[in-house]
Design a protein around this nucleic acid. Structure first.
Lengths: 337, 337
DNA sequence: CTAGGAAGGTAAAACGTTTTATACAATCCC
DNA sequence: GGGATTGTATAAAACGTTTTACCTTCCTAG
């Protein structure tokens, strides 16, 4: 219906006085046409405002110029419209605009394994999956279907899988911990989420190693991603009951904001008595009082890397991966001493 | 490439011992097959895990089961990954999950008029355009191409165009103004954005009428959407210089947060000396001190209405539009007296 | 003078569906 | 008993591309 009044290759061919093949070849830079003919056809096509139908093209070429995007982490949150989870919201925006710059479309697929599966889902050239879980069914499905995919963050349990990119989580964690240590912190508690994704797992591992290196006992708390700020407030009670640490390192901005709020409500001064820091920046971290130091992720660089890898994969070229991007530690009041 | 190993209708036909036509008819509930054959074919198809190729289907049917989404307001912001603009981020998430529930895909198209245009863009069944501008080129393009579209918010300058839905902005504005009045406010300043979209225009009109009805002089300020919180802080200076109003009604949460911050920095107490309220809720509004009263939009209802209209349009049925949804005023500290 | 390229172009098959038109029985009606 | 009707199924066209294979014509080398 939408396409009925479109200009087809046939129209261009007729108008240019050549065959359909000639038009296709001219426009795609193939075949053995003379430069003059090629130029002529291009002119006519431009004049007529011809644009090849993506469907028909995809049918033959079986490449669509479109990639799917699955936000695993939002799926886990259940509610698909959580407020203040800006990491992924920004990721979507960046992915859309960067893909456009490369002439690709981005299709949003909430969860590829839930029915009904969107009709186009399996026609995508490839997929970007953010934060796959351990034994992620979405990854398994893509694998089974033979659809190329890249992941934002390592695939847990698959150390061999190379096609991923993300910020250097280990470096970020090290940088944060070094910063806290420089501020005089000896005991640091870690608050991680419950999703078994690379984000939670890698940062936890780094933290544990850091503790081991220093011979200090780790203090590890788990807090469901969906618990949000309120969960953090509550958790602050448990943390103080267990003895106030010199610093609390929360993996998400929402949890950090909640924990800080909870600590202060209990009379624990931040940053005087204990410091708070977030592993990923967010509105919550920025808008807290004091503002919370946090790692600002780098969606622009990460999405760029992911698209590089995915495009190579789709083209059947060798992908140059994994790739790590640089995050940046934003120092704010919550760790200023 | 991704589709090479797929099971085609031909495979199913062979296995079921019938013609291709029979399979198509059985699966789509068309034609004049006997119940027995139909059932048999369905069973075989299920067994083989057959799924019709969306491209080939789209090529014939010219309906794709996919809609495009253009976020006009984000285009206007330039940066496609602005932090803390949660209205649209939520909108995207809601649109994706609601569309999925209806068996539709959502394709994100940053700006349909910028090149390169994503290949699939013109193959979509229809479009959702959020907050179209006055003389919006995206709308013009869709119109010219004959692609069905619905808009989130009225199309400015086209009072005749019926295919839109949104929260009832007029009612929201009235509700806010009534609330301020009940709190004792006589003079209310309005801070609107600069984009010429229905949101800014309708709320402004309602405000002006309200002032006229009361015989009070309107105090209207314009602040570019992209000015964000900082812009609000600065604007607070101008507002106080012009004489402190009883309340400031900002159309966006970011501006409200900035204005409130700026007012308080100048020693103007909120809510004691003047009240602050936001036309759309956001992280900024929620996390300010005091928290800012704001209208919580209703993306779930609005997206639902938009999809209803769009589906009717695509099916060639009569659309039942426009449709207004209910927003909700969240009262917080910034207006509590 | 002719075999063999090269240069420039096209016809037709293919992609996987849906849809239109048609074929073949079996049944019915008068 | 013959034409019309009904019930079931299929062949083939169509959708708009890309790609494969082939066809001219013209030139050149032997």
């Amino acid at each position: 219906m939408a396409r009925t009044q479109g200009i087809t290759i046939k129209d261009v061919a007729r108008r240019a006085g050549v065959s359909i093949t000639a038009v296709s070849h001219a426009l795609n830079g193939k075949g053995t046409l003379s430069a003059a003919t090629r130029e002529h056809i291009r002119t006519v096509a431009d004049e007529m405002g011809y644009e090849a139908d993506a469907l028909a093209r995809g049918l033959r070429r079986s490449t669509m110029g479109a990639v799917g995007l699955v936000l695993r982490s939002l799926d886990a949150l259940g509610d698909y419209a959580p407020a203040g989870v800006d990491v992924f919201e920004r990721f979507v925006g960046v992915a859309a605009s960067q893909a456009l710059a490369r002439g690709l479309s981005v299709m949003l697929v909430p969860d590829l394994t839930r029915t009904p599966v969107p009709p186009l889902a399996f026609s995508m050239d490839g997929y970007i999956v953010t934060d796959p879980h351990l034994d992620d069914p979405v990854v398994a499905l893509l694998e089974k279907r033979g659809i190329p995919y890249v992941t934002y963050g390592r695939v847990p349990g698959r150390p061999d899988f190379p096609h991923w990119a993300s910020e250097d989580n280990v470096a970020s964690a090290r940088q944060i911990l070094a910063h806290l240590e420089a501020g005089g912190a000896r005991s640091v508690a870690l608050v991680r989420g419950t999703d078994p994704n690379a984000w939670n797992l890698e940062l936890q591992d780094t933290y544990l190693s850091w503790c081991a290196e220093r011979g200090t006992a780790p203090r590890l708390y788990e807090l469901a991603e969906r618990a949000g700020v309120e969960g953090g407030v509550e958790l602050a009670g448990r943390i103080t009951d267990d003895g106030i640490p010199d610093a609390v390192f929360c993996l998400t901005g929402r949890h950090a904001a909640g924990v800080q709020q909870g600590l202060m409500a209990r009379g624990v001064g931040v940053p005087e008595r204990t410091m708070v820091v977030a592993g990923s920046d967010s509105e919550h971290a920025r808008n807290s009082r004091p503002a919370i130091s946090a790692v600002e992720l780098n969606p622009v660089a990460s999405v760029g890397a992911l698209l590089d890898i995915l495009q190579a994969l789709v083209a059947g070229e060798e992908a140059h991966s994994p790739r790590l991007t640089r995050a940046r530690l934003r120092l704010r009041g919550s760790t200023r001493r």
